[in-house]
Write a protein that binds this DNA or RNA. Structure first.
Lengths: 157, 157
DNA sequence: GTATAAATAGAAATGATTTCTATTTAATAT
DNA sequence: ATATTAAATAGAAATCATTTCTATTTATAC
């Protein structure tokens, strides 16, 4: 995995080799910090808080503000490049999903690992809402909270 | 629907006629304010914010603190007497569900009405997590956000 | 290069939610 | 009934994640 931050000045195509989505189509400029945030998330298998991402950013950038991290995470999330995790503790976490098809997440409340659930009730939900409630679905949240294989074996949780 | 607040000094059975659950089994005392919060939610078909509930409480009680409302809502929610609504705006809302069987909610982002979705993916989810991920499900959130029949007809949304 | 619109830093503000302590009250035992 | 005690509450204050603000910097298009 190349250091994407140092690619910032190069052509978009290099970036696109690694990210199957385009910042340009979202009208987002390709900045070193934006790429670094993506790179950090690409390398992770767990969801991270904005503050944790900021901590990692500070290792690379002398000057990096927490609002920058928040702003970028929100923009990337709105562009469906990364996903928000609705943690029961009410804090926001973010995760870059490598699986492009629509699916849902199983999040481990202990180690924070995110695993894909290849199951989606969207069709049934849309049908139910359309036929019975005559309403219009804008979004649906399906998130499964629990303990992953490893964590469920530990007794101290 | 009787004024439950004035029943506070009476026997629990009167209260239980109206609420198909017991505060006692949750080790919660039957206080006038707790009952009033329940009564407010019982009368509503939309989800309310803690502050809105506080506003209604102030009509009846000269002295009522917002932390009391928050504390009660959290306790009642933990006891599964009321449900939390995960609004996209990240604020907490509460709703007293009259339907006792497990189901999910369709929430209208415009008028806040809550409607039941008689569909639950729990079985499939549990099977998926158990067999494929070898993990343990603690909870699942399925919430459908959208516009209800009435609101989806309005053009100004 | 130059223009310009977007992105950023850093400080400050926001605001929902929680904590704290003294006081009051409901539940229980007498 | 009354005393006891553990829970609930008021009100003020604190917390803290998140957002806003303004001046400065930077990516991008020309």
């Amino acid at each position: 995995m190349p250091d994407l931050a140092i690619c910032a000045k190069e052509s978009d195509s290099i970036i696109m080799d690694n990210f199957p989505f385009s910042l340009r189509t979202l009208n987002l400029k390709v900045t070193p910090k934006r790429l670094a945030i993506l790179a950090i998330l690409m390398e992770e298998t767990v969801y991270l808080s904005p503050e944790e991402i900021w901590g990692k950013m500070k290792r690379r950038f002398k000057r990096i503000g927490l609002p920058t991290v928040y702003r970028n995470l929100e923009e990337l999330s709105e562009g469906n490049i990364i996903s928000k995790v609705n943690h029961p503790n009410r804090k926001l976490y973010y995760y870059l999903c490598k699986n492009q098809s629509h699916h849902h997440h199983f999040i481990c409340l202990s180690c924070r690992k995110v695993e894909d659930i290849n199951f989606c009730a969207a069709k049934k939900i849309n049908k139910e809402v359309k036929t019975k409630l005559k309403g219009k679905v804008i979004s649906h949240i399906l998130q499964v909270n629990g303990l992953c294989k490893t964590c469920s074996k530990k007794s101290d949780i």
